[in-house]
């Protein structure tokens, strides 16, 4: 039982982070039909900027997080201006979008390494302090991440549902042609999507850095496919689906280690659980858990 609670708790924490990263990817896909292969490296970037501000410059941690989110937004906006806008204008195909996103990831990674180095880093937060809950070991950092991450998820969900720009984004995603003739400012929608995904990338990166305790520059990249799994699980392009898909995937990955599942999946195979989930969903329900799109034969 305590095992279950432990893995369930871990799954919730991991799942919240997946959800935050996945919703950014999903929004970008729904609005721009762009599969953002660079999303993982934005996490790394967010974690390193926060590290630099809070540890090297000894600024307040929360302030550092906010600044790193702004930095994520700024970089996303910059790339929209110099890259994505031109590609859309040139009617770039699927492959071009894939490759440019990958190219951005390939460029971003060395830049991060060059600026911040390759050493393993950790935040100035006591990662050893733990609470005991029904036999499960709950580290303080994870508890904090869970609280802040669930608050973020609620904020995102409310924002998409209620805010004017959130509604515009959904309308545009559902029917770009109709939305642009019915007075929705497309440039604003695209910009908002990039800003949100940039900010969420940094935020998820900080959370992931906290949960891992220590991190290096490969952190985000290694998680990318798990995010895709969450996005596909929750129906690609569906923002709420991505939130749910992220949570669900986190739980699947952690609970798969319970001994009732084939004696428990070894923890070094956790990423494989995510990849396998991705492949299985694509095979049997490519429209995701909330989708009803007819399967392509």
């Amino acid at each position: 039982m305590s095992d279950f609670i432990q893995y369930f708790f871990n799954g919730l924490v991991v799942g919240c982070i997946f959800a935050i990263a996945a919703v950014g990817i999903s929004l970008l896909y729904s609005v721009l039909r762009l599969v953002n292969f660079a999303a993982g490296d934005f996490l790394t970037l967010g974690a390193f900027i926060t590290y630099f501000l809070s540890v090297t410059l000894e600024l307040n941690f929360l302030l550092s997080v906010v600044v790193s989110m702004i930095a994520g937004m700024a970089i996303s906006w910059f790339l929209e201006l110099v890259l994505w806008r031109n590609l859309r204008r040139n009617k770039a195909g699927t492959l071009a979008l894939f490759l440019v996103a990958t190219g951005v990831a390939l460029m971003l990674r060395p830049i991060i390494q060059f600026i911040f180095g390759t050493e393993t880093r950790k935040f100035n937060i006591d990662i050893l302090k733990t609470y005991d809950f029904l036999g499960a070991r709950i580290p303080q950092t994870q508890l904090l991440v869970l609280i802040f991450a669930s608050a973020s998820i609620l904020t995102i969900a409310l924002f998409i549902a209620k805010a004017r720009i959130g509604k515009d984004m959904r309308a545009y995603a559902n029917n770009p042609g109709l939305a642009s003739v019915s007075g929705i400012n497309v440039d604003r929608v695209v910009l908002a999507t990039w800003l949100i995904s940039g900010a969420l990338g940094s935020l998820a990166g900080v959370f992931q850095g906290l949960v891992q305790g220590q991190f290096n520059n490969a952190m985000g990249e290694s998680l990318l496919l798990s995010f895709f799994a969450a996005v596909v699980l929750g129906t690609i392009g569906d923002a709420y689906g991505a939130l749910a898909g992220g949570l669900l995937l986190g739980l699947i990955m952690e609970l798969s280690q319970l001994s009732i599942f084939f004696g428990g999946v070894p923890s070094n195979y956790k990423p494989v659980v995510a990849f396998a989930t991705l492949v299985l969903v694509l095979l049997f329900k490519p429209e995701g858990i909330f989708g009803y799109r007819a399967r392509k034969v």
Binding site: L83, N86, L87, N90, A92, A96, L99, V100, T102, G103, V104, A105, L106, M107, L108, R109, P110, I111, Q113, F114
Partner: peptide, 22 residues
């Protein structure tokens, strides 16, 4: 550092090609 430079250059070539000469 050279290894990062290599990765960076490959990313750059891919991006430039897709934008300028697909």
């Amino acid at each position: 550092e050279r290894a990062y430079l290599r990765v960076f250059l490959i990313g750059l070539v891919i991006v430039l090609l897709m934008v300028k000469r697909p």
